[in-house]
């Protein structure tokens, strides 16, 4: 695991700033994580926590007009993507890294048949042309289980249901056999029974191809069913990262803990929900230290400075960014 070359993607100290009314603010700061082959890393957090900005930073899609990566590296097979220019990034996007978005209707072109759009991805990124591209596109659509794909090859996006459109998007993402899939809330717009089907498909494809998957979501239930490891973000900071069972069983960061006890669960009788009081501070008024401090019951004076992300003594794979909890653990260990 320590060999950098084995990790298809490693993010190291990534900091992205956005300009708001002439001043620059860190939207995410010092974000570090990595994904291994055949691993699903869930990036979870509430809106505004920076999970989507992390994805945009990885893809080199931060809007240049008012955003920029100010520090850190994004290593794809050991090669830093941050300094690459747009032409070089275009070769990587959709090729080595593919993205799946929340709303497939806006990502698909409404006036082109879906089969054509899958074939187009192939023609653009591979040497395939004409009939070969068409045949491969059909195979991909069958692979993602679009029913009667041959008959529906020339249908348009609006003739498909949301779940089917998302399958088409997945087919396009898979077109160039990417090493990494970056899925940004891919099932959020879908009904639960359809969500379950798409999650099953993604899990199956991942283990088949051995690709790495970064799965961005706000839904901890979805995280529990698909992730191998989980990274929790809050207000632009990555505050905890751990293997999935470990995270749900022993959440260490006070925010993770509070988040888990604020979910109404379908498998349990109505216990008392414990909401987290207050709300995320606006980006223009972020504390310089721990950004969760003003909502945190465990706050100590030291929280005024930013805590580091440290591995626990009992399990170095479980890292947490909290002065109180990290200290507790090392004492007890």
């Amino acid at each position: 695991m320590s060999e950098a070359g084995e990790l298809p993607l490693a993010v190291d100290g990534l900091t992205t700033a956005f300009r708001v009314e002439g001043r620059w603010y860190d939207a995410i700061r010092d974000v570090s994580f990595s994904v291994a082959r055949n691993e699903t890393l869930a990036l979870v957090g509430e809106s505004g926590c920076g999970k989507s900005i992390t994805a945009l930073s990885i893809m080199g899609l931060v809007p240049k007009a008012n955003g920029r990566i100010t520090a850190g590296r994004v290593l794809l097979d050991g090669r830093d993507l941050v300094p690459l220019d747009e032409t070089e990034m275009e070769k990587i996007r959709g090729n080595a890294i593919s993205m799946i978005f929340q709303e497939p209707m806006t990502s698909l072109n409404p006036v082109l048949p879906i089969g054509f759009q899958v074939a187009e991805a192939l023609r653009y990124h591979t040497a395939l042309t004409g009939e070969a591209a068409r045949a491969r596109a059909l195979a991909l659509l069958e692979h993602v289980k679009v029913p009667s794909a041959a008959r529906r090859f020339d249908d348009y996006p609006h003739q498909f249901s949301g779940g089917m459109r998302q399958r088409v998007m997945i087919a396009i993402a898979l077109a160039c056999s990417p090493q990494i899939i970056l899925a940004d809330e891919p099932t959020t717009a879908l009904d639960v029974t359809i969500q379950a089907q798409v999650l099953a498909l993604l899990a199956e494809l991942k283990s088949e191809t051995g690709m790495a998957m970064i799965f961005i979501t706000h839904n901890l239930g979805v995280v529990a069913s698909i992730a191998d490891r989980v990274a929790v973000m809050y207000a632009g900071d990555l505050i905890e990262i751990a293997p999935v069972e470990e995270l749900f069983e022993h959440p260490m960061h006070p925010y993770t803990e509070a988040l888990l006890s604020s979910i109404p669960r379908v498998d349990r009788d109505a216990g008392d929900l414990k909401p987290i009081a207050g709300q995320v501070p606006p980006i223009t008024a972020m504390p310089s230290g721990c950004r969760y401090a003003d909502r945190c019951p465990l706050r100590v004076p030291r929280c005024a400075t930013m805590p580091p992300l440290v591995g626990l003594a009992v399990d170095p794979n479980h890292q947490v960014r909290c002065w109180v909890r990290a200290a507790d653990e090392s004492v007890s260990a």
Binding site: V192, A196, L199, N219, A224, L260, V266, D267
Partner: peptide, 24 residues
């Protein structure tokens, strides 16, 4: 089917994924 497809925040209680075939 609805109950089984509803995600539960517990990795041990993996949802029975994709059991329900077809679309609404």
């Amino acid at each position: 089917a609805l109950r089984n497809a509803s995600p539960v925040p517990d990795p041990k209680a993996k949802v029975i994924m994709g059991k329900l075939e077809g679309e609404v």
